[in-house]
Structures are given as C-alpha cells and as structure tokens.
C-alpha cells in the first residue's frame, strides 16, 4: 500500500543491524513478565480466599493458637506458597506501575530495584517465621 506521496510503507525495525546479520532473534522472554503476572494471579485466587476466610473465622487468636495454626504442616505449606506468590505478584505489579509513571530514568530504575529488594526481604522474613514455627 503506497501513501499519496508514493513512498513505500516501511515498518519500524528495532533490531540492530548486527543482530540481524547474526540472525539472533528475541530473547524469547517478551511476554514472560506479563504471563507470570497472570499465572501467579490464578494461583493466588484460591490461596488468598483460603487465608482471608481462615483469619476472618478465627479473630482474636491467642499466641498459642496462632503458633499452632501457622505450624500445622497443611497451613505452613499453603502459607509458604502464599508468601512466595504474593510478593512475586506484588513486585511485578509495582514494577509496571513504576515503569509507567516514575521519572526520570534513574528514579525509575532505582525504585524498581528497591521494590524488588524490599519484596524479596519481606518474603524471606515471612517464610523464615513460618518455617521456625513449623519445624
């Protein structure tokens, strides 16, 4: 299809000339971030509903009751899954918000790295607490 000026349509090519010569394609990870956000959200659906229902039906737990509940193998395994998936999903989501709105570039990169660090440390702290009570 030609435009009125008679210029042929040229698609925008973002690959470098060297990359084209070497025939190296994409890293095959283009949709990985987006896809993992969906996979973790599906896994979090039942886990989160389980956690909210469990807490809502046992308000005002004593320390001994809480320790027993967290330390029960069934609950501990689900809690570990919940912790890992929650912070993976949270870090991925916050990253996208920052990528959209944080400016300038150094603020964007620094804040994304900070979010990843905080989410990783929170997840590790929570997992350690569960494991201490479960084993």
């Amino acid at each position: 299809m030609a435009n009125p000026a008679g210029e042929a349509a040229r698609p925008t090519i973002l690959r470098t000339p060297l990359g084209r010569v070497r025939g190296s394609g994409s890293a095959k990870s283009g949709t990985h971030h987006w896809w993992m956000q969906r996979v973790t959200s599906i896994a979090l659906l039942p886990l989160t509903i389980w956690f909210i229902v469990a807490l809502a039906t046992s308000a005002g737990m004593t320390h001994a009751e809480a320790v027993a509940w967290i330390g029960h193998p069934f609950n501990a395994v689900l809690l570990l899954a919940l912790i890992g998936l929650t912070f993976h999903h949270a870090a991925a989501g916050l990253q996208v918000v920052l990528e959209d709105y944080a400016k300038p570039e150094w603020v964007k990169i620094t804040s994304v790295l900070a979010v990843k660090a905080v989410c990783t440390l929170l997840a590790l702290a929570a997992a350690l607490a569960v494991i201490r009570l479960a084993v």
């Binding site: 350690l128 607490a129 009570l133």
Partner: peptide, 24 residues
Amino acid sequence: RATGIIWTGGAAVMVWWLVAAASG
C-alpha cells in the same frame, strides 16, 4: 492499580503478624 499497591501494604502487615508470632 491503587488497590494492588494498598494490598502490598497489607502483605507487609501479614509479614509483621507472622514474624511476631514466631518471635514470641
């Protein structure tokens, strides 16, 4: 997006709750 950010804060409260239970 806003509730996602708020819920991340909620997840931090969950961590506080779990760590406190393990502390004593």
